[in-house]
């Protein structure tokens, strides 16, 4: 597995903790957490500053994205991220949805973006399963 820089965007502190701990269990240590789509976008947009600060740990190459968030939700994030990818060197960065939603409608809407590679339903995947999914999309 190549080095994974993970970015978790979720408004639930506990869900971030759970995913973060699962990622650590499978050996991913470069993890950044953001509590809203807006915070996630700001983080990516401050590209030069973060690159300088974090070095190889930036930019993230996998973003775990929640859907229901108060300020900028997952779908709004995807739309804005599309523009941001071209602006910065984020073309190798892919997204894995991380949501409680099991609705096909939400899955279809997310998969409409070419950079969305998988859809993890919260509470349904073990650390090992997440590892397999990551391996699969790399």
């Amino acid at each position: 597995m190549t080095a994974v820089n993970a970015l978790i965007i979720d408004d639930s502190e506990i869900d971030r903790y759970i995913l973060s701990r699962q990622l650590k269990q499978i050996g991913i240590t470069s993890i950044v957490e953001k509590d809203d789509g807006l915070a996630g976008l700001n983080f990516l947009d401050a590209y030069d500053e973060n690159k300088l600060k974090a070095g190889d740990s930036f930019p993230p190459n996998i973003i775990f994205l929640d859907i229901n968030m108060p300020q900028i939700n997952g779908f709004e994030f995807l739309e804005r991220f599309k523009a941001l990818r071209a602006k910065h060197e984020l073309l190798s960065c892919v997204i894995m949805m991380y949501s409680s939603s099991e609705r096909q409608e939400d899955k279809d809407r997310a998969y409409a973006y070419e950079f969305v590679k998988d859809f993890v339903v919260k509470g349904e995947s073990s650390a090992e399963e997440i590892a397999a999914k990551i391996k699969n999309i790399q």
Binding site: I14, I18, N68, S100
Partner: peptide, 14 residues
């Protein structure tokens, strides 16, 4: 369904 399920899922993970 989402908001009722979310705390349950979190609690299960925890």
């Amino acid at each position: 369904s989402h908001d009722l399920k979310a705390p349950l899922t979190s609690a299960k993970g925890l």
